[in-house]
Design a protein around this nucleic acid. Structure first.
Lengths: 330, 330
DNA sequence: GGCGTTTCGTATACCGTTATACGTCAATCA
DNA sequence: TGATTGACGTATAACGGTATACGAAACGCC
């Protein structure tokens, strides 16, 4: 069952069928009708692989850091809502939060002749990204590279989000505010955690307070010991801002287990406003990045880039603090 | 940069390079060394698309019902651990819990010349699955079709899991035990929810109790109203077994909000043992399906099927009840 | 009516691999 | 020694589409 089968059935040439498939120029209504009837009758479906060897595949690759991260579904749904309408398909690659793994997946997607790539929270360095982006239209979400010229970036304003948290904690009367940041051994200043850290430090300084950053291993590693140590320490802070709900939710639970009252003894604010944070029993204050919107914008940027735009676009979305019980009792 | 570039650089024929790439017969050590040196030097990567036109793509498709479902990551990781070693790549398709969407994705994966497919919790009917499975090696996870001959199935013993829950609730002294099942308008008895329902009904009958099944809309639709109505009803049951944590977690939170004590006034047991259930503040008893193991078994089955096995294999894994605070106070 | 100009359809080179058929040469065998 | 066998490389026809070049009508214009 190939394009040749269809051509024979419709009594036309192979090229004619191809033209109909591609909406190419030079097809009469009569021809189109004949061909479409045959396609329908035979249930023919063109091979993406063969198609990709010369033309477009109409398939986009989406790379997610980690499948268990609760923030990613919203971004994915945002992307999908846009690409669906435009008639593009999506293939997802899951990179276990390791840069090597991600590079492998990107290459795989290039090998599969995808038309474009959206990388969500990639841990790959700017230089490497740049090299890949020259080979395939690319949009990066959740990775700050505002000067990149070969790809677009869509980000939440992580600096501002952290400042909002510090200000809210300050207004709630807290002065002893610590931050839980991801221990980034690769020192990628472009990642979201360091950005939030900068915002935190700046806001603390602006309020005349001394910043105190505590680093924990990344989320794909166990880190309960570190959290427990923090809570048991004699100089336990009165408020903790966590770079992600992935840390804030376990911290909140651990505090509860250890008999520490939240927020009376310890206020906690997370980041991402994941579904778990919103559960009444958890009630974790958190920063909402509006992942859906970021996904939509990323997809739009990618489509326009595939459409020919060459000059890079860098967007920053202002986040929103969702106040809940872990910040303000009630 | 094609196979021809490499051939020219190494001073050999295109066929020779192809042979080296495929580990085919008739390659001397000297030739192999020359070719591999050129590949390394040029950084050549074969095109999967072109490769797929005649040979294998070494890429497997994994279809997930819904990206936000917290049970799926464990299955995915299980699959990955096996396929990684075997040198296969994975592409993920996300089907928004709609059969039409899933069919579309399956076709897309066939179009992309994937070597095999793993469908996780697919909602597609047995007949349709059968039609696709004839075109491409297929393994189905979380969908009971024990008589299917064209594809393999890997399932948790949902019937037994439900019975375990009823027995545990019975032993805890409960008699008024209801079940929250998914409202399956398509009436797919093969899905997991109806299987659990059967196990529940059987166990209730065995204990001499009257079953009481309450149906709620599927998880991609809002269903807070139904849950709230259940809790507010004058004949509110004393224990509820939920077909999934996706319902049990909101129910638990709602009960707490409405001042209903868990488990004193209402015992709740979920299914899937998702990460949220294990949080101390939630402490939801749940049935653990061991998704990781199911994923591993699915991948192994698929590889052996790709390897030539034609007779279908149907595996049933015994689940395990994880007792927590929502079932037994302490 | 002769001459460009569209419009429409066909023939076919090409995309980057794989796999088969085949040729060459040295080693082995009767 | 001539024939057979294996080992190793090469040439090349697929694979299933796309896109370009091109031919044949139909059309518009003076």
């Amino acid at each position: 069952m190939t394009i040749r089968t269809v051509a024979a059935d419709a009594g036309v040439s192979v090229a004619a069928v191809s033209k109909v498939l591609r909406n190419a120029y030079g097809v009469s209504d009569g021809l189109r009708a004949k061909v479409e009837a045959s396609i329908e009758k035979l249930g023919y479906r063109p091979s993406v692989a063969a198609r990709g060897m010369r033309g477009q595949t109409f398939t986009l690759g989406v790379l997610l850091v980690e499948i268990a991260n609760p923030f990613l579904p919203s971004v994915y749904h945002g992307i999908e809502s846009v690409t669906d309408e435009a008639g593009y398909k999506i293939m997802v690659g899951v990179g276990a939060a390791r840069a090597g793994r991600e590079a492998q997946l990107i290459e795989q997607m290039i090998d599969n002749r995808m038309d474009g790539l959206i990388l969500v929270a990639s841990q790959i360095s700017g230089d490497t990204l740049d090299r890949y982006a020259r080979q395939i239209p690319t949009v990066v979400v959740g990775h700050h590279e505002p000067t990149a010229s070969s790809f677009d970036t869509i980000n939440s304003d992580d600096f501002e989000g952290a400042r909002m948290v510090v200000r809210a904690l300050y207004e709630a009367g807290h002065r002893d505010i610590a931050m839980l940041a991801m221990d980034d051994k690769h020192d990628h200043a472009a990642d979201v955690s360091p950005q939030r850290e900068k915002g935190y430090v700046a806001a603390m300084a602006a309020a005349g307070l001394t910043p105190r950053v505590i680093r924990v291993p990344p989320s794909n590693q166990p880190r309960e010991a570190e959290l427990r140590a923090l809570l048991a320490a004699p100089d336990r802070p009165r408020a903790v801002f966590c770079w992600s709900d992935l840390d804030a939710v376990p911290l909140l639970n651990l505090a509860h287990q250890m008999g520490i009252r939240v927020p009376e003894d310890l206020a906690i604010v997370g980041y991402d406003d994941s579904p778990v944070a919103a559960l009444p029993l958890i009630s974790l204050a958190s920063v909402d990045q509006d992942g859906r919107r970021m996904g939509r914008m990323a997809a739009q940027a990618l489509l326009s880039r595939i459409g020919g735009r060459a000059v890079a676009e860098h967007r920053l979305i202002t986040p929103r603090l969702v106040v809940r019980g872990s910040l303000q009792g009630g």
